[in-house]
Amino acid sequence: MILAVASGKGGTGKTSISVNLARVLDAPIQLLDCDVEEPNAHLFLTAAPSSEEEITIGVPKIDAERCNACNKCVEFCQFNALASVGKAPMLFPELCHGCGGCMLVCPNNAIREERYRIGSVTTRQAGLITLKSGCLDVGVSLASTLVHAVKERRNPSTTAILDAPPGTACPAVATLRGADFAVLVTEPTPFGLNDLKLAVDTVRELKLAFGVVINRAGIGDDRVRHYCEAEGIPLLLELPDDRRIAEAYSRGELIVDALPEYRSHFERLWQAIDNESTKQRGMPYRAGVAR
């Protein structure tokens, strides 16, 4: 079963909620860090990397002998990754999306594929938590492709928590697609509400079961709560604003380790996810069979 933790706005506590949720579960669990531009979950778990896997895409390699400079591949490429200057086309692998179209259109069989690195997936084991972190190489733009690579490395036999990138753009949607349940983390502020609405539009578009967590409850106003009530969106948890939480976070500590009194909040969150999953999808979250 796949639980995605997402938010319209950055800095609402998505990673914090994901890591603490994983920690309070008394069973093996996977945590997949899909925030591949800024992967941060590993900063909160003390575990050395056990393996690092290189993630690649297939980019064209043009055989200059066979190429007759017909330019069909250059004209086909939607991403301007190929350029023609009269001879065999030049490749700009950093622009290639790895669609394979150039190979398909080449009439001379002059194109084969070679691997091009876009990032890595690092695995760590911290107690019962298996953390897999995607990290996009600096200068590469294929965040969604790397998100897919992280998700493909999920072991379907245990529960997985996906820490999504913020926002509602491609990489966030790539993370959310196929999830069984989405937890949207927000703050009780006007910015938080504005961005929550965008996140709600997104999960509705994807037809996902979902609920909302209000982090730093008490710092702002009631507009988020009223919005959720009016829209019939379940409020899964309100985590109070507590300077000690911010301090623990600043040191890279887990809330449930530094402040054990908050353990019950996260246990209740699992319960709420279970209940809502049953209500919205007709099956409890954890009892579900792996897909």
Binding site: Q78, H97, C99, G101, L104, V105, V173, R177
Partner: peptide
């Protein structure tokens, strides 16, 4: 549409 990269391979196929 949320998964389409707009590469155009399907048009070719």
């Amino acid at each position: 549409a949320t998964a389409c990269e707009g590469c155009g391979v399907c048009l070719e196929a």
